[in-house]
Amino acid sequence: MEIIFDQALAAKRRERAVRQSGPGAAFLLDVAARELAERLSVVERHFDAAAELHGGTGIAARLALETGKVGTVNRIETDATFAAAGEPITTAPLDDVPLAPASVNLVLSPLSLHLVNDTPGMLVRIRRALKPDGLFLAAIPGAGTLAELRDVLLTAEAELTGGASPRVIPFADVRNVGALLQRAGFALPVVDVESYIVRYDSLFPLMRDLRAMGMANPLVGRRRAPVSRTLFLRAAELYAGRYSDPDGRIRATFSIIYASGWAPHESQQQPLKPGSAKVRLADALKVGSSDEN
């Protein structure tokens, strides 16, 4: 297994972010949590026991409970720092799923799978933790996320030093996520992607937000030498020239992959023959149909 992310550093930065961040810093997690809750709300099932894997603020767990579709949620995080006052929490590394086999009906993964070194293994462990016909719902930053920032940092560093080091982590392609769900043994996998454009006055507020979200660079292969302010000034200049609107504000893209899959069960619709019609999203999520007018 290739080690891409420094797990200890990623966990430390996430923990520091939750301690220091002010209101609004977790806006991206809020958006993803609301989307997961909306998708959960249309499933014609009740999930007695659920788990939230490394959900940061815990908003995905709270909104899932508010749908009325979930009995209890076991929050799993890297540190007790993430727990609200008096809230029970299970601690485990980002690569771990500390759940007994077939112990929960629902697993939520809001914006943390992109930091896992062994994604196929992680998905297998999640599927094993689900009871037969249990549901997995995830929000995963995907390809295209922070593409503008990646571009200007690479260009600026190449101009100033003649080389470049990775400063924005790699993000998964939506097709690869679907293939990984199938490989992990999930039934009826469904994946789609939503892109969100966030505007900033300049590159520097964007980078402050990324630090506040615990999304600073955790790559093992990152350059360890201190970064000069000259690099960021040049990157900010390139950003304003390439990705600004008429009012002068810059655009930052966040592409979120929403994925779902079920633990196999004999009652589920069986795979169709190659070339035949694909499963509808409503069928995969087990949404009740209404009579047409």
Results as ranks from 00 to 15, higher is better:
Y258E: 09
A83E: 09
P132C: 10
L188W: 00
P98R: 03
V227S: 09
G134R: 09
S255A: 14
D79I: 07
G22I: 14
S228P: 05
I197L: 13
R249C: 08
H265V: 11
F5K: 03
S202G: 14
V124M: 09
A187C: 03
F204L: 11
F136M: 04
R34L: 14
A64W: 05
L94P: 07
S255G: 09
L160T: 11
I169W: 03
R183T: 12
G185Y: 00
T161W: 01
S103P: 06
G134H: 07
L36W: 00
A240I: 01
F27C: 06
A187Q: 01
A100V: 12
D133V: 08
F5P: 05
V220G: 10
S109G: 09
P93M: 01
G248Y: 08
D209S: 10
A263Q: 06
E52F: 04
M207F: 00
E237P: 06
E52G: 13
T81K: 04
R211S: 09
A83F: 06
L233C: 08
S112E: 11
A32C: 12
V116A: 13
P132K: 06
R127F: 02
F82M: 08
R223F: 02
R39W: 04
L94F: 03
A51K: 05
R251Y: 04
K131G: 06
L238H: 05
A139N: 06
A184D: 02
I89D: 04
F136K: 08
D30K: 15
A83N: 04
A252K: 02
E44M: 11
T57V: 13
G214C: 06
P170T: 04
A64Y: 07
L285T: 13
D30E: 13
P101V: 06
R167V: 03
P189Q: 05
A139E: 05
R34D: 15
L36C: 06
P264I: 02
G214K: 02
E87S: 06
A263F: 01
Q270F: 00
L181R: 01
G71R: 01
S165C: 09
V116K: 07
A263H: 08
G221T: 09
L65I: 07
G163P: 00
L99G: 10
D133S: 11
I59V: 12
A252Y: 02
E266P: 00
F232V: 11
V220W: 03
K69G: 14
L281A: 15
V18D: 12
E292L: 12
T119Y: 15
P98W: 00
G288N: 09
E194T: 15
I3P: 08
D192Y: 04
P271G: 10
A50F: 02
D133G: 05
T67C: 15
